[in-house]
Amino acid sequence: MNPVNYLYLSALLFTIGGVGVLIRRNAIVVFMCVELMLNACNLAFVTFSRMHGNLDGQIFAFFTMMVAAAEVVIGLAIIVSVFRARRSASVDDASLLKL
């Protein structure tokens, strides 16, 4: 097996995550799909790292993980405060671009 298959898998997961972002209304699930896309990217980075024989790809994946963690913290905090204000976590309810 060629490791390029990891890349195909990564592309597949990324696309599934993207479509999930587009079709789900629950903000938390949308957020999970974003995480899925990030993870797909990480898999690609790790695979590239192996292909090129150096660790820079892994460093990238590492930073992605850290930024993703920060993003999760802020994103979930936003979701919670929006939920508090509107009793709803649906992204469609915030269609007036204001609370």
């Binding site: 993207g18 972002v21 587009l22 209304r25 992204v91 469609d92 915030a94 269609s95 007036l96 671009l97």
Partner: peptide, 13 residues
């Protein structure tokens, strides 16, 4: 411009 973030996301995608 329907205000739905998901519609805009489709455009981005």
């Amino acid at each position: 411009q329907n205000g739905y973030a998901r519609s805009y996301a489709v455009s981005m995608f």
